[in-house]
Each structure stands twice: as C-alpha cells, then as structure tokens.
Write a protein that binds this DNA or RNA. Structure first.
Lengths: 185, 185
DNA sequence: GACTTCATGTAATAAGTTACATGATTCA
DNA sequence: TGAATCATGTAACTTATTACATGAAGTC
C-alpha cells in the first residue's frame, strides 16, 4: 500500500481509541514528538487519504455548531498497522545543530565551549520535559510506551553528562581568554 | 542573510580548503552525515547560490576534458560562517523508526522484542561505521571533529547497551512463545 | 575492455513547516 | 468579556530525496 510514516503514527494512535485529528496532534506532541513528529499540515490530509483508502473511518460527532470528526481504525487499517510492525525498522536519523557547530568550532575561537554548553542546555531542557510527563505515562500508557519514554530520559541524561565531561576535558577550560587551538588544514 | 543549514555545512567544509561539490559530498558522507546530512540535490544548487551571494568563489580546474570546479571561502563567507557559529544552536531532532514501533508494540504480539533487536542492530551497525573511520579522524581532523566522533561512538554504545538491557527486562524474554501483554485502551 | 571512481548537474517527487482563515466552546 | 482551548482545514513555501543524464579518467 506504500503509506508514509505519518500514516503509521495515525493508525497506531487510533488502535483501540477513536480520536479527532486535533487529539492525534496533541498526543503526538506529548509523546512520539521526541522521536517522531507530525504537524497539522500532515495529519489532516493524511486522515483524508487513509479514509479514502478504507483504513480509517470517520464519524461526525459535531456537538451543536462545533464540528468534530472522530476517526477509528477499520479491520483493514489494523492489518496495515500490523504489517508495518512486522517489517524491520530502517530510519534512524539525527539533526544536531550543536554538534555541527562543535564540528566546525575550529573556525572561531571559543566556539567549542559555547557549543557544548548549548548542547548541554538543549538536552537538559528535553530531559525536563520528559520527566514532566513521566508520571502520567507510567500510569496511563502501555508498558511499551513507558519504555520509549524511559529510553528518552536515559538518553538525555547520558547526553547531559557527556557534555559536562567534554567541557571539563576541553583544554583551556574555565579561564575564558585562553584559546589556543586553531586550524588551517 | 538567512542561509539554510546546508549552506553552513558547505561554508564550514570550505574554511581552510578548496573543494569541489563532489568532495564536499564525500566528506559529509564520512563525517557530518551521522548528525547532519546533505545530498547532491542540495549541495550543487547551494554552491551556485553561495557563489551568487559572494560567500564562496569557484575556480575552473578542469584537467583536459574533465570538468572540475573548486570552491573556496571568500572573506564574506568566512564572516557568515563565524556569525552562524556565534548563534545558539536550536535544532535537535531525531527520527527513530524502531522506537516508533516499540511505542506501538501493544498492537502486535512479539513486536516489542523484535523492535528492540532491530534497534540494537541499527545502533551496532552505526557504531561499527564510526569505529571504522576513527583512526583517520583521530589523525587528520581537528580535535573538535574528533570530539563529535567520540560523542557518536559513546552514544551508539549507550544505545546498544540500553537495548540489550531492555530485552532482558522484557517479561517473557528468551522463551519465544511466551507473549502475554496486549492492550486495548 | 569493463568496472569503478571522479565530477556536475537537473527534474520530479516527497516530506514537512508555517502561517493563515475560521469559528465554537469553556473558563476565569 | 476576554483569553485559552477545541477543532478543521488549506496554501505557500522550504527542504530533502531519488533518479536520471552525461561523460572523462583511472584501475584491474
């Protein structure tokens, strides 16, 4: 059937519960966002395509004047989700701007500690957000969903620690004006 | 000037060396690829735009009939690179399909150990590629470039270990037919 | 002579973000 | 009554991938 990744996020979130596009977006933002994002501009058109393909089914649940369309998985949609789950995952990508700046830190004095400090801060912020949602996930989500969260937490902790250690090991650390290493190769 | 991220990868790689688009792609594939990718479809058009903006300068170095255009950084290009290095990094994104499958593992019996095994394998493969290039990087690259590589290695090791531990902690591990947890919430 | 690498580029497509437009309901 | 939240959707744009087309030079 060749669906895109957003489609599987939607199918997965609809398995067992009926949800609106808005609710799907809310859940993504509080859970999969940390390793897989989706925007309204993807979710709403994709819901339409999935409905046309018979993988989800939408029901109007408008209360009064307020429109609201709840989607649920069809048997075909569930099969599609399971078929995807059986395939070996391939995508494993990262975009880390702080690391890119560290990579090029030879082009500007003092860029390395700055990059490491910022990287540390970004991981610490992510860690804080993950810890915030932890109690709710531990109670309400599946053990697998909780496992992905614990992975995110452990990973962020590791990254924060690594940055701190790298900052300490940096030659000339502490003393701000001591910038030696330069490069022209 | 509002350049895109590919532009900075190019500027960074041209600082100190003249290179062709082809060489830039080769270097990206062996270094920044692990945290920041760029394809030919981005690199060649971007080199054209950067030249039009006066940030890089290309020189024909065709040997015989074989065309070859080497680019080098202009002073304006170097300033642009340094200005970018001074800004706080923001982008920190991950796309992890294995984690997404673990997240939805409640929708298919046995999906969780499979996802974890695949995730472990992907990290182990990445780790192997990073270790392969380590000696060359340790010798020829800047200490900052080497630092980013060591981060990649340490991170991959962490991920491999986490997957192994998670597999052990999984209820019903080892015995293949013992799949309990299901979910319909 | 065949294969690989060096080398440049474009076209088509896919994926993803952001901003906008609209409006009801709920809560303080 | 004013702000926040619920709710749907589209348009414009940016970003990125993939495949294609072309051909010289070097290697086995």
């Amino acid at each position: 059937m060749a669906l895109n990744s957003t489609a599987y996020v939607i199918l997965g979130l609809l398995d067992g519960s009926q949800r609106t596009g808005y609710e799907i977006k809310q859940i993504v933002d509080r859970s999969t966002r940390f390793f897989w994002t989706a925007s309204y501009g993807q979710i709403y058109p994709e819901l339409g395509r999935l409905e046309a393909a018979g993988l989800v089914e939408g029901t109007e649940r408008s209360q009064g004047e307020r429109k609201r369309k709840e989607y649920r998985l069809t048997p075909a949609g569930r099969q599609e989700l399971q078929a995807w789950l059986r395939l070996a995952p391939e995508v494993l990508e990262t975009r880390d701007e702080a690391l890119l700046k560290l990579f090029f830190a030879g082009s500007l004095p003092d860029a390395a500690p700055k990059a490491l400090e910022h990287k540390r801060r970004l991981h610490a912020e992510k860690l804080a957000r993950l810890r915030e949602i932890e109690p709710a996930v531990a109670e309400h989500a599946t053990p697998y969903q909780y496992a992905t969260l614990r992975f995110g937490i452990a990973l962020s902790e590791f990254c924060v620690r690594w940055c701190e250690e790298a900052l300490e090991e940096l030659p000339g650390d502490g003393e701000p004006s001591n910038r030696t290493k330069r490069r022209t190769a």
